[in-house]
């Protein structure tokens, strides 16, 4: 069982939502999970309808069966200052560095340093134990950067250990890589049944594998039921028109004769059906492509009114129902 779940996917596919649902799903039966975000957007706070949290771990939700979800928005600058303080007791020097723009440099410009700090903090939470020697968190779920950047983000070893060949940053990178490349970690990719996200998912999996980072599952998000397909349209094309007009009329939607209310509904309704059928075809093709990747897949339906807290709990239930992730 993995203990660090990294959730990535193309922008806007539902990474934050799925990460939160997963943290909830993994927290049932009295377990405790930590949900971390690394991009400084307070997406988790928004989702859980709480105010932005400071740089500290706090409980944000209770899962069915007494579990707990804690959350942390990791801030690279704070992580660096803490780190300097911890290893070098550099309290005031930290401030001086900050003034000079060095902290800015280290956390936003210097390639990879930021990522080491962020992944380092997450890995620390994964390994943290309490006095009795038990893990503090049963699982850590990370709302990670999008697919296009996630391999680079996780593969800090190549980035940083290559640049900083010795020193604490080098060591930190090495330690992080040991966790990230172990079976303790699983990277899950969220996708929609659309061409670009599916393509990015396939590319992302190949990149992750090439970097020896373990891939978990594919979460197909915002699926919609197929109400009609091409077969139905064939019927319509084969002259079911009068029949449909009659049925519509039967259902109280006006007259079925030519030009009647029901009759006038048919063309636009059939047009919508054609569009729907085209989309269904497209989605089937994308679905087949995802299945061919040979990874476990999970599906989450589109919530018509968007994701609120109740919806999020529902998504967590749906995830659990689909087996261990």
């Amino acid at each position: 069982m993995s203990r660090l779940h990294v959730v990535s996917g193309k922008g806007g596919t539902g990474k934050t939502t799925v990460a939160a649902a997963l943290a909830l799903a993994l927290a049932t039966e009295g377990r405790r999970t930590l949900l971390v975000e690394v991009e400084g957007r307070q997406g988790i706070a928004q989702l859980f309808e709480t105010e932005a949290f400071p740089y500290e771990e706090r409980k944000i939700a209770v899962a069915p069966g007494g579990g707990e979800v804690h959350a942390l928005a990791i801030d690279a600058e704070r992580a660096l200052l803490d780190y300097l303080q911890m290893f070098y007791k550099l309290g005031s020097a930290g401030r001086a560095l900050k003034k000079l723009g060095a902290i800015d440099f280290a956390t936003t410009i210097a390639p990879g340093l930021r990522d080491v700090l962020l992944t380092g903090k997450a890995c620390e939470a994964v390994r943290r134990k309490d006095k009795s020697g038990a893990f503090v968190y049963d699982a850590v779920v990370m709302d990670a950067p999008p697919t296009g950047r996630v391999t680079r983000f996780l593969n800090v070893n190549d980035e940083v250990a290559g640049l900083a060949k010795i020193g604490p940053i080098h060591n930190q990178a090495q330690a992080v890589m040991r966790v990230l490349k172990s079976p303790e970690t699983a990277v899950h990719l969220v996708t929609l049944l659309e061409e670009m996200p599916v393509q990015e998912t396939a590319d992302g999996i190949a990149e992750l594998r090439a970097a020896n980072i373990p891939v978990g599952g594919v979460v197909i998000n915002m699926t919609r039921p197929a109400l009609l397909d091409n077969g139905d349209l064939d019927i319509a094309a084969r002259g079911a028109r009068t029949g449909i007009a009659k049925a519509l009329s039967q259902a109280g939607l006006g007259g079925a004769r030519r030009g009647g209310h029901a009759d006038r509904l048919i063309d636009p309704l059939l047009e919508q059906a054609r569009e729907h059928a085209e989309r269904v075809e497209l989605e089937r093709a994308e679905h087949a492509e995802l299945t061919a990747l040979g990874l476990p897949t999970y599906e989450l339906g589109l919530l018509p009114e968007g994701v609120d807290l109740a919806g999020l709990y529902g998504l967590a239930r749906d995830l659990r129902r689909q087996g261990p992730i």
Binding site: D232, A240, G243, A247, Q250, A273
Partner: peptide
Amino acid sequence: SAAQLAAGLLRLH
């Protein structure tokens, strides 16, 4: 089939 098809069209709508 027309009745079912009509129902489907209406749900879609």
